[in-house]
Amino acid sequence: MAASEEASRPFAGLSEVSISEDIPVEGDISVPMSSSRRDDEFSTLDEPVKETILRDLRAVGNKFIHVLYPKRSSALLRDWDLWGPLLLCVTLALLLQGGAADSDDQGGPQFAEVFVIIWFGSIVITLNSKLLGGTISFFQSLCVLGYCIMPLTAAMVVCRIVLVGGSGTVSFAVRLMVVTASFGWSTFASTAFLADSQPPNRKALVVYPVFLFYFVIGWMILTFSPSQ
């Protein structure tokens, strides 16, 4: 019996020690961390919906400014979102409607075609840069390519305003200038963000598809002619 008690005591002692150590350690680690995080995250539950939406919109607007002044900052890359690209893409596709597409034969691009060209095109460019060994992540690249459509969307707005005035040679010249400028702007801005992620001897290989992508979008904008 004594031997058996002695044999059981070490076990009992161990179990006591292990239990007594287990509980405080769990409590110490888990409780304060989670509580402090919860305070930060769920504090937005109390704020009005307007503030939440405005905060997201402000983030999107911040990125628009980054596209306008492409100064190789990584803010556009660090926290990506796809709201801005979606907004720009839908705006562009809507503005391209109501044109020659109304006539059934060989008209301009339909809404779905614009949508597919923009998203599928940027996915292909992203895959291309990943396959070439780029260090940028998939959605970061999609985000940059989408946000850099902004100058072209602005050009589309200008084109529609110019087309209200008439569609003669002068209006075509104005549209050509605006679209060319915004095409160069888009390409320059996206190159500023994307080219650094590539090895130096492959930069041209990555920039060329981007150039082609914005060129095609610019072509769609330039050839848009409203139905009369």
Partner: peptide, 9 residues
């Protein structure tokens, strides 16, 4: 003649 972009091409 009315210009169309002929996007289907």
């Amino acid at each position: 003649y009315k210009y169309t972009p002929e996007f289907r091409k």
